[in-house]
Nucleic acid binder design. Structure first.
Lengths: 201, 201
DNA sequence: GTGAACATGTAACAAGTTACATGATTGA
DNA sequence: TCAATCATGTAACTTGTTACATGTTCAC
């Protein structure tokens, strides 16, 4: 699936400028399973404009530069439906973090501890982001809330695994802090971390 | 992270040919968080050979064509350690399936039902693959089993979500088949699918 | 008056994929 | 003999990213 289809899909939810599409891909529910940069979004929009898949309207904004608001046309919807009909490519999950963990013996202990903590915080942030979407934003769309639920479930399980199995990688030198709660069932090392430097930008 | 580092990392576990590296990336625990094709592996290996990061040994095989077995050199390990020291890029999860679900209203019901079932089967296969790795293969490496555990946890949660929330997307017209087991706790629609056509190659 | 957020766009570049090209060997 | 698996390699091509280039308005 290409940026074209991606933009077309987003535009079915609401009209948006290239800038706004990029923001959605970064922050909204979309962000968990798609990706795109300005360098691909703007040219795609321009080209689709020429092909009649979208139309533009210049919008003046008080206190902000003008923006070009794109909307999908009936022809665009047709194209989208066709593009959507091909069987989806299988999921692709890339994790440099996991690669580093796999090769942790080549890394200084402190580095491993640091990326481990960063990963936990990153996952917490992502989950929080999804919850925000479901809360304040309009994820009224049933499909949207389904997708959000899926993301929360997957990321949540991953996070829990990292929290529970910390000792497996980091040894028992867990930061001496308070336990999350009293309901420990088996071999838990649940520790609430405190650092705040999120290095993976 | 590039294919170079990927190959170097894999070669720390065992010597391998380009063909074997590709197979590992497809089938082993690696497969869940990295990706590479022949077209990138072979050139990377050749280049690293010239740079002294790996060395080769031609191995004759009974009943099979000869293969070029690559091994990492001390210099290669040095390079790997350096490459590993940079903070990992954040995880990237791409799912065309989720994109299609989000836009399901543009798709025929049957298509949605079909990709939904395919996705469930795909996830089951992936989890099974991980379990096989842990079982027969040597995932003796503690880091390996950790990574496998993480994959199993994440994928398992995603699969469970799909199984439990089928009705949200597909409605209640679940195929009339036998329930998986009797231990239903809350709102489960766990159905054992029977189709076998896995379309996402 | 300076940095941050808003806003659009392009061109050079990186990186890897696909398809092609080749060839051995085995088993149905 | 034909498909499948093993095995290596290259070149054209896609695709998208990064960095650059430019400009507005606001808040501190």
């Amino acid at each position: 699936m290409n940026v074209r289809t991606l933009c077309l899909g987003i535009l079915t939810f609401k009209e948006a400028s290239g800038y706004e599409i990029k923001k959605m891909v970064e922050e909204d529910v979309f962000g968990h399973f798609i990706d795109a940069s300005y360098g691909s979004i703007y040219p795609a929009l321009t080209k689709m404009m020429a092909e009649g898949l979208v139309n533009v309207r210049a919008e003046e904004q008080a206190g902000k530069p003008d923006k070009k608001v794109y909307a999908i046309t009936p022809f665009g919807r047709q194209e989208l439906a066709a593009a959507l009909l091909v069987d989806p490519a299988k999921d692709k999950f890339k994790s440099e973090f996991m690669f580093q963990i796999m090769l942790q013996e080549f890394l200084p202990k402190e580095h491993v501890a640091q990326i481990y903590q960063s990963q936990i915080e990153y996952l917490r942030d992502e989950i929080e982001k999804i919850r925000c979407c479901v809360g304040d934003h309009q994820v009224n769309h049933p499909s949207m809330s389904f997708v959000a639920g899926f993301g929360e479930a997957s990321l949540g399980a991953g996070l829990k695994f990292l929290e529970d199995n910390r000792a497996q990688i980091l040894g028992d030198e867990t930061p001496s802090l308070t336990l999350v709660d009293g309901t420990l069932d088996h071999n838990k090392d649940q520790i609430e971390g405190q650092s705040k430097d999120q290095k993976n930008a």
